[in-house]
Simulated assay, not measured.
Amino acid sequence: MKLLVSKKIRRYLLFLVMITVAVVEVPIIAVGQLTKPVPSDTIIVLGAKLIGKQPSTMLRLRLDEAVRLYTAGYARAIIVSGAQGADEIATEASVMHDYLVAKGIPAAKILLEDQSYNTHQNLLNSKEIMRERGFRSAVIVSNASHIRRSLVLARQLGIEASGSAAPMADNAYLTAKQYAREGAAMLSLFVLNQQ
């Protein structure tokens, strides 16, 4: 009898986990695939880990997407956002700036925001730069797994924004890890908003 109850409880818990994953992860995946950028005043590129003085794969993919958008005329300026992490030798913003300049973006068109350590701070501090420059709208660039939460936070902060999802790294483990991380972050954001 005890074994039967235990099996039922395990099945029930597994069902709850599957439903939760579906409810949380499906919108993250959908927004990452379906979001489209809208011509705006600026592009905001959210920071990510550095490898020495080089952007990580995820960050490079974001920066390449920003180059594509800028070249296609989606915005007249780019805000690069990210501080120096404890394990980094430079600010993410400075490395992003140098990468974009090397790709042909004029240095004068790149605005640095180098005080933020998380997505909320990235957007809050970028909003202040937008206010100072008279920018009203932005295209937020991040990887597909991160774009939904970025847009939710932008809306909460009153930023008029569309999104442009950079691809994920060509690494199944890293991709799964990023989606799991974002699922947990979205759940946390939902819980905080209910308080």
Rank of each mutant, 00 (worst) to 15 (best):
G104S: 13
Y117L: 14
S126C: 05
K127I: 07
T119C: 12
E113G: 04
I89M: 09
R148A: 08
L112V: 14
I147K: 06
M96A: 15
A86M: 13
M168F: 06
K109Y: 12
T71H: 05
N171D: 15
E113V: 04
A86N: 08
A172D: 11
L100W: 04
Y99I: 08
L112Y: 01
T91H: 02
A66N: 07
S164C: 00
A154R: 05
L111K: 08
L157M: 15
Q178L: 12
L111E: 11
I89A: 12
A83P: 05
E132Y: 05
G134N: 04
A138V: 00
I78F: 13
D64W: 00
N122A: 02
R76A: 03
S56H: 07
L111Q: 02
A66I: 07
Q156L: 10
S56Y: 12
A169Q: 15
L123N: 04
Q121A: 09
G73P: 10
S56P: 06
K103N: 04
A161M: 09
V67S: 01
S137V: 07
K109P: 01
R148M: 15
L123E: 14
M130N: 14
S162T: 01
L63G: 10
E113W: 09
S81V: 10
E160N: 08
N171P: 03
A154F: 04
R131G: 02
A161V: 11
L157F: 10
V139L: 02
A180Y: 05
A77G: 13
V80M: 11
S126R: 11
T57R: 08
T91K: 03
S94Y: 13
Y70N: 01
S81F: 04
A169C: 06
T91M: 03
E182Q: 10
T57D: 14
Y179P: 03
P106R: 02
A144C: 00
V101Y: 02
S94T: 11
